[in-house]
Amino acid sequence: MTAALLRRGILFALLWWILSEGRAGSWGLGAIAVAVALWASVRLLLPASGRISVAGLFAFMGYFIWNSVRGGAQVALIALRGRQALQPDMLEMQLSLRSGAARILMVNALGLMPGSLGVRLEGDRLRLHVLDARMPIAVAVRALEARIEVIFREQP
């Protein structure tokens, strides 16, 4: 509990340092802001529930950001080549993620991955739109799913 509070306090203080652009005179207000943020974060999200893997979350963020860069570059090239470069399709897949939060993260994150866009989520049925059916989207979806399983500790 205290370790979790300390971690959050450091995180909020770091955030304040960034937002105030490192101005030394702002720490009076900053201390109040960090205290209020800490209070709100404990009210809204109890620490030390151990349900989320922080290392997994950071690994996911790195993977997500890198693939969003790939996805952006790829769609830019397709846009410049025009409509003839498209071969869109709708895919239906079965998700093995169990918790609702994991599935929501999955279907939202898909929109920035190369060539895919989450369209509907009903139970564990995922419907997604793909820009080019010749791309190996199903493999990429499984890879993303595996990363999210690590965050939510849902190893099969």
């Binding site: 860069v69 952006g72 570059a73 830019a76 498209l86 929109g111 920035l112 060539g115 820009l131």
Partner: peptide, 14 residues
């Protein structure tokens, strides 16, 4: 759908 791919992904990389 394909316009969404273009706007969301390319603008974010921009």
């Amino acid at each position: 759908y394909s316009r969404l791919h273009a706007l969301a992904k390319a603008d974010n990389l921009g």
